[in-house]
Simulated assay, not measured.
Amino acid sequence: MITIPILPAHPFLYKVATQLATTFHLSVVDTLLPTLPFVLYLTEERLELRDMQTTIGPIYVDFVNGTLGHRRRYGGGRKQPLAKAIGLKHSATPTVLDATAGLGRDAFVLASLGCHVQMVERSPVIAALLHDGLQRTQQDLEIGTFIKERLQLIYYDTQHWFSQLSPSQQPDVIYLDPMYPHRKKSALVKKEMRIFRQIVGDDLDAPKLLKIALTYARQRVVVKRPKLAPTLDDMLPSFCIQSKNTRFDVYKI
């Protein structure tokens, strides 16, 4: 993994930067060194991951505005493919552990639909971005309260987190969205995936994670895949839910 420091935009943000660095085992710098490929830039508004080698815009977590804000309002509710794959129907609202949280988009959608979701993220850089996004979202007058109740970030290696769960803590559903070399998505997400791969690498332990998840989920494991990609580790699912560019492989327990 690449070491990426936090750079506060103003001296008065140094304390906040230090607190973040302590929580997520990162470092803080007060000047931008030309040799740094990436930096976590802390402004008054948010924490941003910046690629210092290109002019590509910053990556940050925003659960309130933009695409996720639109999806929360007009995304189709429980009829959308993700919700169907998780098992959301009628009064059924399963608990979900998102074992490969990334930027938390699917986890946020599920929380918006009523699920209690734990996002587990092992990358300190991605976890810091998620933490910042959650903190800002919790201040929002419209959705802050339910997000605080339903969406939780756990900065931990997922496999080790599983081993700590007691039977009463096991989630109904474990959700996996592993980053694989053959993934094909839009130009925007390709930008993110390219940067993510440089920072955290591909999820080469995803097959092992699937096998472990099958022993800890109460009801099902859901694996998000590119539409034409093979099943993870050639394990045939119980059934699949298709969307335009994505497939959800559902393994019922």
Rank of each mutant, 00 (worst) to 15 (best):
I147A: 04
A213D: 08
R78C: 03
E192S: 09
T23A: 11
S112I: 00
L49G: 09
G66C: 03
K191G: 10
D106G: 06
T31A: 12
K252S: 11
E45Y: 12
L110I: 02
T3S: 14
M52T: 12
A187F: 03
I253Q: 11
A92S: 13
D205T: 10
L7R: 07
Q159S: 14
A99V: 08
L13Q: 06
F38M: 00
S166D: 12
T35S: 13
V29P: 03
L141K: 13
R220H: 02
T145V: 12
I253V: 09
Q198F: 06
R136A: 10
M52H: 10
P237D: 05
A128T: 11
Q139F: 05
R136F: 05
I241Y: 10
V28T: 05
I59W: 00
H10T: 14
S91N: 14
L36K: 01
I154E: 09
P37V: 07
K148T: 13
R122Y: 04
Q80C: 08
Q219E: 14
A128V: 12
K191D: 10
D106A: 08
I143V: 15
Y14I: 11
D234S: 12
Q198P: 04
L151D: 00
T95A: 06
D132E: 15
R50P: 07
R183G: 06
L204Q: 12
S168K: 15
G104V: 08
F63Q: 00
P34Q: 00
I143Y: 03
S186M: 12
R218F: 01
V222Q: 00
L7W: 03
G87P: 02
A213M: 05
K208H: 12
V109C: 04
C240D: 10
T31S: 15
T93N: 05
A229V: 10
L232R: 06
L236K: 14
L47E: 12
D177H: 04
H70M: 05
L214R: 15
Q198V: 05
A107D: 08
A127E: 09
G77W: 04
L130W: 05
K185D: 14
D140E: 11
V250R: 07
D249Y: 02
P8A: 04
R218K: 15
S91Q: 14
T55F: 10
R194W: 07
Y251Q: 08
T93S: 11
S243I: 04
G57I: 00
A217Y: 03
T35C: 05
Q118I: 13
P58L: 01
V120F: 02
I126F: 13
V250D: 05
D98F: 01
F248I: 00
G77C: 04
G114P: 02
K185A: 14
Y175C: 01
I86D: 01
T67V: 13
Y74A: 03
K190M: 11
L214W: 05
D177K: 02
H90Q: 14
R197K: 15
G87S: 08
R225K: 09
M52N: 15
Y74T: 01
K227I: 15
K224N: 07
R50Y: 07
A85H: 04
G201M: 11
I154N: 11
I56D: 14
N65L: 03
Q198Y: 06
E44R: 14
T246I: 10
V39W: 02
D172I: 00
L97K: 00
M179W: 00
L103W: 02
L153R: 01
T35P: 00
G66I: 04
K208T: 12
E45W: 07
Q118R: 13
R73C: 01
Q80I: 03
G76D: 08
F248M: 02
K185V: 11
R225C: 09
I253C: 10
